[in-house]
């Protein structure tokens, strides 16, 4: 799995449909969804519950497969990969930040950060050094031997972010990353994401909070498994110092493109 060149989209979905069977009903969680997430972009995915944003995230995360359509990560067609290859892809190309932090309770901070590397077929030799550097970066260098239970929510989410970076992923996926945090801590975490974006990392964040969406470069709204709208926020990376309350969110938008079906 080599590094694709810089103009290939990090994640490209073409006519992706995901159908669930629930009892007698079939639910189209994604319905002919097509989009390409470019390198270095920061996207917020929004939408009411049932709009398909979780399914989109699962498909992007390669833990769910589309019923129909093509999904490429860094140019690699995931439909052609078996379970092991897909797992390897996750451990090399993707970083995850969950709402409930999802650290492994038996492992200390350092081990938690290193977990994705453990599962690579050919783990890098400098894994531990990387993990230490990342822990330092998220301000937890002094707590490497702590267990998740001994950390606050904000600290746990920092560990999770460090973990999502340890494999130098092509794409960072965040699922309501601030949902369990108080507003002050949430801001810290969002600032961290802004930093990552400024460094040129590709981030897709699912959220239902408008003010979180404001921080992203683009906001994609989903409805019934399709793109309802895409909004490009007007701000630069310097805005990471600034926090806009929800009431002023409307003013921050300068461009709104409505989409139906594919882009």
């Amino acid at each position: 799995m080599g590094q694709a060149n810089s103009d290939t989209p990090v994640a490209e979905l073409v006519d992706v449909t995901r159908v669930y069977r629930m009892g007698g009903n079939t639910v189209r969680a994604l319905d002919g969804f097509s989009h390409a997430f470019g390198r270095g972009e920061y996207w917020a995915i929004m939408g009411s519950s049932g709009s398909g944003k979780s399914t989109l995230l699962n498909v992007l995360a390669c833990i769910d497969r589309p019923t129909r359509g093509v999904y490429k990560v860094d140019g690699i067609d995931t439909g052609k990969l078996d379970d092991d290859e897909l797992s390897e892809l996750r451990s090399r190309k993707l970083g995850f930040v969950f709402q409930a932090y999802n650290l492994i309770p038996q492992l200390d901070v350092l081990e938690n950060i290193m977990t994705p590397l453990f599962y690579q077929d050919d783990p890098p030799a400098d894994g531990e050094a990387r993990a230490r550097k990342l822990a330092e970066r998220v301000g937890l260098a002094q707590r490497l031997d702590h267990r998740p239970m001994q950390l606050s929510g904000g600290q746990q989410q920092r560990v999770a972010i460090a973990r999502s970076l340890v494999n130098q992923p092509a794409l960072i996926l965040a699922d309501e990353a601030t949902g369990n945090l108080d507003s002050a801590t949430a801001l810290e975490i969002l600032a961290l994401f802004d930093e990552l974006h400024a460094e040129g990392r590709t981030i897709v964040m699912v959220t239902h909070e408008a003010d979180v969406g404001e921080r992203a470069q683009h906001v994609m709204r989903l409805k019934d498994g399709r793109i309802e709208s895409i909004i490009r926020n007007q701000h630069t990376s310097e805005r990471s110092e600034y926090y806009a309350p929800a009431s002023t969110a409307q003013d921050a938008r300068d461009e709104q493109i409505a989409h139906r079906g594919d882009l």
């Binding site: 797992s87 390897e88 999802n102 309770p105 599962y119 690579q120 973990r163």
Partner: peptide
């Protein structure tokens, strides 16, 4: 179950 899900998401293969 949840731990298993996390590990799988982070790249654990079935054999792991």
């Amino acid at each position: 179950t949840r731990e298993i899900g996390i590990r799988r998401a982070l790249g654990a293969k079935r054999r792991h």
